[in-house]
Amino acid sequence: MAKIIVVTSGKGGVGKTTSAAAIATGLALRGKKTVVIDFDVGLRNLDLIMGCERRVVYDLINVIQGEAGLNQAMIRDKRVDNLHILPASQTRDKDALSAEGVEKVLDTLTKDFDYVVCDSPAGIERGAQLAMYYADEAVVVTNPEVSSVRDSDRILGLLGSKTRRAEQGQDPVKEHLLITRYDPERVNHGDMLNLEDIQEILSINLIGLIPESEAVLRASNQGVPVTHDQKSDAGQAYVDTVSRLLGEDIPLRFHEYQKKSLLSRVFGGGRR
């Protein structure tokens, strides 16, 4: 049985899709049979980040409405074996998602895969609630700023009450904090919240810290998940994150301000 992991945040633009793509890629690179599902119906993005936008024929809504089979809609990743993408529909909206339909799709997928990664839309409405409803684990993506922390807090409240595990009184959804766009220099200057403050407010286990990096934007625009960019700090940080998701004890990196090494990494990355 696969583990269902939802990547969520409440706030938009914090790096949910980037993280879902990077984590799914990382899991597949570790030999886990993984499928990543785009729940952002109407604002389809995951296929762009995964670089498979030209190969989309059918989507999640077609499958839910019985117009296509799962195997027709799933796109096999060209770079990694074991990785599949189930895109969202761009022409429909989130009302086309039904709880029963989502459950049926997830039930089928959990039989064949090791990990099902659900890329949640922003907000706390239907799309986001359905993305998290069947989850076993949640990766809550948070930027080091007050509004993002507040929205993550709200999402954590929903994870504790509006999920199948909560409603059926099973073990709660395992919550992980993923801090993205962390810039140790700006944290030092007091422009950004620091790691400890975020952890204190949200009081959940930290699964990873992704530094602010040029590699992320480049990866998005090229349609290559940043996990493949092993020379970049962000790529390495996602690999660490995946290892921790798999239960390994990896020390935290990239959270301290080191002027020289950071600059050399940035320039080193920028020239490639």
Binding site: R154, L156, G157, S203
Partner: peptide, 26 residues
């Protein structure tokens, strides 16, 4: 545990004891 943003916890008649923090928006 933590009372999170958007959550409301009440003890209509008696005392309310929170073993954790009450976050902004709660």
């Amino acid at each position: 545990g933590t009372v999170r943003s958007g959550q409301q916890v009440s003890a209509a008649e008696g005392d309310l004891i929170v073993l954790g923090s009450v976050n902004a928006g709660a």
